[in-house]
Structure formats: C-alpha cells, structure tokens
Nucleic acid binder design. Sequence first.
DNA 1: CATGCAAATGTTACAATGTATCATTTATTA
DNA 2: TAATAAATGATACATTGTAACATTTGCATG
Lengths: 168, 168
Amino acid sequence: MGSCQHESELAGGVSQRIDTIINHAEQHCKTHGVRLTDKRKQLLSVLIGSEKALSAYELIDLCKAEFGKAIPAMSVYRMLQFLEDERLVHKLNLANKYVACAHISCDHAHSVSQFLICGECSKVDEISVPKQVFAELEKNVEEAGFHLITPQLEINCICNDCKKGNKH
Amino acid sequence: MGSCQHESELAGGVSQRIDTIINHAEQHCKTHGVRLTDKRKQLLSVLIGSEKALSAYELIDLCKAEFGKAIPAMSVYRMLQFLEDERLVHKLNLANKYVACAHISCDHAHSVSQFLICGECSKVDEISVPKQVFAELEKNVEEAGFHLITPQLEINCICNDCKKGNKH
DNA sequence: CATGCAAATGTTACAATGTATCATTTATTA
DNA sequence: TAATAAATGATACATTGTAACATTTGCATG
Ligand SMILES: [Zn+2]
Ligand SMILES: [Zn+2]
Ligand SMILES: [Zn+2]
Ligand SMILES: [Zn+2]
C-alpha cells in the first residue's frame, strides 16, 4: 500500500483529490480505448466523493443535487455497468450498492479485494486479501466442485463509529 | 464432517431423508421453546428438498405446487426470518435466495460457513471455513476498524456441471 | 461541411423483491 | 370458556432492476 488514494489526504482538499482520481480514470479509459463521457464522469465523481456505498437511486438523487439534472435509472445502471467493466467501480452484491474502486490512482496491481460493509451507515473499506488466505479459500472451492467467478469477498460488518453509537 | 446430511444418501429415498431432517428441526425448536408450525415446516421441507437456493417467490410457487395453497409473500418472508433466526435456513445475500442449513442433523457445532453459489443454476454448497483462515480474515477486519456481524462468506462461483455446459 | 453509422442516452412500461400496516385466525393460558 | 399472545392473511406500496424502442451525440468518411 502507501500510495492508495484513500490513505493520502494531502493539501488541496476533497475536490482536488477527486479531480486527481478522475484524471487517472480518464487516462485509464484512453489507454483502453473506451470513452469516459461527461455523464459517466459525473457518476464516478459522486462515488469517489462518497464515504459510503451508494445505491443506484441514491446516486440519481446525488447527481441531481450536484448537477441539476436527473439521470434516468436505466442510464445509471448502464453507466454503472460500464464503470464496473472498467474496474473503476465495484458493485457490492451484499448491499446492492456501489463504490468507487479504492485503487484507481494506484500503480500497483489490483489484487483480490475484500469489502467491509457497515450495515448501519454503509461505510465501506476495500482491503486486500492476503494471497495465501485466498489460495486456501480457492482450494476449498475447487475441492467442492466449484470454480470462482469474481474473486471478491464481501462481509457484513459494523464500523467502529456505529458500534460506539455515533450518529452520522 | 462425515455425518452431514448432504453427504449421506442412505436407503429410504429423498422423502424419508427430508422427514429425518424435519424431525431434527422439530427437536431443535422444542429445545429452544419456539414453534415449528405447519407452514414453517412446509417451507423448510421445500428448501431441504431443493438442490438449489430458492428466492422467496420461487418458494411460494413450489409450496403452491406441492401443498395446493399459495402463501402470501409477507408470510413467507416472516417465516424465512424465523427459520433464519433458528439457524435452520441461511439467507444468501449475494443471490437474494435461501437455502436450508446443511447441518440441521449434525451434532457437531455450526462453524463459520462459506457458501459457494453457482451463478448459472443456483446450486449451493455450504462448506466450513478453516479456523485459521477465518482468524486471518477477522484480524484484517479489526485492523481496518470494522467488526464482523454475521460470520458467513458468500462467493460467486460456477459449478462443474454448468462449466461443462450441462443443462439442468 | 454534409452525411451516415455506431455508441450513448432517454422514455416508457414493467418485472421482481421486499415491507408497513392493519385485520384475522390460531394457539396458549388463566 | 374468556382473555391474551403468537402467527398468518390482505392490501397497498416502496425499492431495485430491466426490456424494448426512440432519440441524441460523437466520429469517420467523402
Ligand atoms: Zn478496487
Ligand atoms: Zn458505520
Ligand atoms: Zn448452516
Ligand atoms: Zn451450476
């Protein structure tokens, strides 16, 4: 770790931090020959700016609040699919919510991720699963006659703040 | 392992196997001072008899087919909640589906479960997570400032049959 | 620049999943 | 048996997600 965006809150404030990540995302898309359109960029920036995982309809509300115009649900789901395919966003199936990848600006490879999802406030942390832990899990999966599809662990948690009874 | 219901297909056929498990479930409920009503028993037996995880509405359809009368969705969700609380049934959040616990008839304690869910055919296997693997995961969760709620891992897989292209 | 194509987005109508609320039935207990 | 609590039913609705078709936008080519 060390260069992950969620750990570096340097001078410049939140909006500049978002811009930096968006720049990385644009570079990523250029490299992959796909287009990060304005709408897709709006969605992504809202997700990057959010501490919590957001549902598709929460995203719609936030986009409307921030950019003035409501994006139809159908379009939002399509854009989320695009961002997921590009690995800029992760869908959390446990919660039916979406988060920006925590490693958009990192240069290190994207290893197997484990998502810790607070059931109270939807705060999410994306951490890496140690290689040998994951290898052990995978071995058991194969022995049971299954094969992994999306190597991604999601776990229902409660965060420290919510455990202490803090309101948000 | 060794005495788990899903590994022992002795003489007597499927329906007797289901009866045996239901008997264990009734004993469990008696011990815990709760009631395994007829409706709850119907739901549970349909789940036990199913190879696949079932959605609430699939359960409604199967109950109607088998017992003649449709159970309202509201009631089904309440009964599923009851069965979940009694640990007779597990909800798979990844798939929004339900499975009977694979260990209702086992005498050994119910350890941390990992559910392998085939995305094609919804076949599910409930296997145990090795203690030390789970301990490692939990350590990382705590270090990230979260606490586990429901120690249950769910992973999107594809089963051998579906991988080979078999239809069901 | 005009034109034509493909990608992206919008619109409408719906399907699927889940719940809040209040009414009714069933079981337990006094 | 009457009172009480637990379980189930009925209705209406909220949330999440998608299919099908229309429209707009970006881009290449003549
Ligand atoms: Zn990521
Ligand atoms: Zn929290
Ligand atoms: Zn179980
Ligand atoms: Zn399968």
